[in-house]
Design a protein around this nucleic acid. Sequence first.
DNA 1: CACTTGACCTGTCCGC
DNA 2: TGCGGACAGGTCAAGT
Length: 294
Amino acid sequence: MPELPEVETIKRGLTRLITGKHVSGVEFDTLKSFPNSMADVDNFLINSKITDVKRRGKALTIDLDTGYSLVIHLKMTGQLVYRADKVNFGAGHPTDSLINALPDKSTRVTINFTDGSRLYFNDQRKFGWMRLHPTVFVPDIEFFKKLGPEPLEKDFSWQDLKSRLASRQRTSIKAALLDQTVIAGVGNIYADESLWGAKIYPGTTVGALKDSDIKRLHASLINVLTLSIDRGGSTDRNYVNAEGKKGSYLEFANVFRRQNQPCPRCGTIIIKTRLAGRGTHYCPHCQVMKSALV
DNA sequence: CACTTGACCTGTCCGC
DNA sequence: TGCGGACAGGTCAAGT
């Protein structure tokens, strides 16, 4: 579910909501959601203070004053929702239907703070996880070591994108964008949206892209990711921010989930197909096929 | 190595 | 209304 803009939105919310809070207790259901030992939880999480919240790619890191960090990946359906109130409103409460019944059957982990507030980790499909890791060794986790550069870092240039793509010449540009070792944080929504913005057919072979194509793609990626963060991310199904609210970017999306609708640029009907194992949306008129796979 | 496919899970939607 | 199959925003392991 959450891609870079969604995780960034959650990160900003959590920074504001939980920094400085003290953990008083933790409940979790399965070892898959929280694969640390109870001893680790007791020694490094309980009674700890939250010192910082960070994002790298689609992963979150919550630093604690015990020298440990909570590393979190939400995968497809994970949610991190903070609630200050102690009262459960129950189903049907008008203020916030998405989170009014937390915890629910998708709640994997509940972190209680000393002031009575709570952080819920909900995950319908159970793909996501959170785990404790020594803070200084977080960068050594294999996922982070292999991760490509952050596309919204100021020094990320089109030449950087070109060099990251250099080892993926024979695959499609869509598959390359989804590969987190090429660049960090792009998922299915923003791959389709950025390729539409750059007028590149998603099945185009990376090796067939010219410098001018890569320049447009670089600009389009930054544009789309930045706009989505401004809109609070995309809610297709499950995504909510740290306060349980949906994002509005999909209202501004140009191709994603817009199959059978006219392209905003040229009016041609948008196609949905399957590429790199994923649903893929594009305009068959303005996203030109060059040397293409599929 | 580069590249593709299936598995991990639950829920929902669509066609019969 | 019921049932089977396809599909869903991500990553891995295992295959070619």
